[in-house]
Nucleic acid binder design. Structure first.
Lengths: 146, 146
DNA sequence: CTCAATGCAAAGTATTTGCAACCGA
DNA sequence: TCGGTTGCAAATACTTTGCATTGAG
């Protein structure tokens, strides 16, 4: 068992480290920085590689863009994040890993969670013969009301 | 190879030409070829730029890939096609322009229409303050059943 | 000490754009 | 003729990869 691993400042670091641990990923400096930015305060986040890279720079942490991409991919493979496809030109990553609907603000290219009751699906989606449903993506595309 | 014809078929040409006309687009040779491949038989289609380009080559028509891209974009702008984003790495274009759910076969990267009763939305999706719903994308991701 | 993780730059994809030649009305 | 269209190649935007270096266990 982890010999009471460096529980120096169990506050912030605790959550990120535990999160990485849950995905069986080594807590390297870069991963801790990114994990902290993603789940540090417990709120759900929707980021792009670019936005996360900027966020890291803003707090003075140096993580290369390639590493941000690779790390997001690793987080996804470990089941810590979900990739959401809404734009075609870039990938969004969501810290919520359950199947839920999204709002996509077209003008700003911003993604956010939609309240559970924003849409209601009746029953289970039907899968054709020989296939099974892996996931149901629901994206509510929004436009500013004029 | 010999100029395999000017496609002097009134029957087929009719539908494609009318379709282009509906979008106020000039019926050029390339556009007629692509339109014919898209709506020639009246069935709904889901294509990528790449797949449509191949289809054109398969029938001996020469249309450059750049033109396929530009033309698909023009068809979309004219409201003749809808762009569907499911994969992130490529764009799909659907000849059905109404809001309807899709099946996405992950292994094959194939997109198809889902029957109307595959999913049912209850009522209108809720839009947050100051915004209105532009469209609701529903993608049922499928996996081959083992 | 060992092997996974990182950083950088180069390589890939998918798509768009600049511009001269072309063609449909 | 004239302006919209096409084709090609070069440019773009995003993402992945090769490889030498670094660092966690």
């Amino acid at each position: 068992m982890p010999p009471a691993a460096g529980t120096a400042d169990a506050g912030k670091r605790g959550r990120s480290a535990a999160w990485l641990h849950a995905g069986s990923l080594r807590p390297t400096r870069q991963r801790l920085v990114l994990a902290e930015l993603l789940v540090g305060d417990g709120r759900d986040r929707h980021v792009t590689a670019e936005s996360l890279h900027e966020a890291a720079q803003d707090i003075g942490a140096s993580v290369s863009l390639a590493t941000v991409y690779n790390t997001l991919r690793a987080f996804c493979d470990a089941g810590l994040l979900t990739e959401v496809t809404v734009d075609g030109t870039r990938s969004y990553f969501d810290t919520r890993v359950d199947d839920h609907p999204h709002y996509y603000w077209e003008e700003e290219g911003r993604l956010s969670d939609a309240p559970n009751d924003a849409v209601q699906l009746v029953g289970e989606p039907v899968a054709p013969e020989g296939a099974e449903v892996a996931r149901v993506d629901v994206v509510i595309r929004l436009r500013r009301r004029r």
